[in-house]
Amino acid sequence: MSITWMTLKVVRKDVEAENVVSLELADPTGKELPTFTAGAHVDVEIRPGLIRQYSLYGDPEERRRYRIAVLRTETSRGGSVTVHQSLRQGDTVRVSVPRNHFPLNEGDHPSILLAGGIGITPLYGMARALHRQGAEFQLHYCARSEARCAFLGALQDADYRDRVRFYLTGQSPDYRLDLDGVMSQAAANAHFYVCGPARFIDQVLETGHRHGIDEERLHREFFAPPEPAADADPDGAFEIRLQRSGQTLAVPADKTIAQVLKDHGVEVELSCEQGVCGTCLTTLLEGQADHRDFFQTEAEQAANEQIALCCSRARSPLLVLDL
């Protein structure tokens, strides 16, 4: 059976850390589940109409269980609160077959795993996979406090515990992760994997770019709609540069890119103006878009190669468009 959705049963629910619960999901009849690899995630339908993505942190060789960990976020759109409050052992939920948008790169090179908070979930699985392969790796795990560190005990007791470093950002600055240090000491062929809040990911990517680490070696995963980057005006203004004409235009908070272009006499083809039809997709040459269209797939949005001018905004101060 290889349809996209399965109905699985919550066979165990545990508290992993402050505001983090883990769920074990199994087929109600005990059948083996589709395989996955480290970094994979599943979609979980928490209740009708409410679907969220969670990384699988369990052992891929354990064929009858999927394990996910869920952080409760009060600002969430209801997913995590429902998991924490309403979902009980014995309940069934619909779960998609695993997909992996965040796979480990194959090849002989060191891997550096950078986790921010609940972003540990895919990286925990990766650490175990790398350890099993006998590969060289480091896991850097940032959390606000020990109490909020999911899998703390398991990681402290792991065979590979000497490769794990914890950074508790709620404590003194001495305990903070020195990204520059990690990156400057890394081997020239090392691959970096980052998962966590958008701000944390941005920081890692930005540091990586500063160290001249090319995109192929910087791997990231984020599910939640990205928060505005620290240096971007929240939901607000940014600039666009038109590569062909060299014009730089300001996009104020209350106007779309398309409106600004039109105001300046730049012709762009528009149709739905809702991010549905894909007519206004334009090549994005530089900058991180805040994708708000429905046309592109998750993978296309993550690739960040095209932007819908009618609705999308920026997570970096400047977007360079092929116009």
Binding site: S271, C272, Q274, V276, C277, G278, T279, F294, F295
Partner: peptide, 17 residues
Amino acid sequence: FKDFLAKGDVTSVKVRR
């Protein structure tokens, strides 16, 4: 011709693709 698409067409457009 190209049809005018609206919010309600999100699934249709994804399915077309």
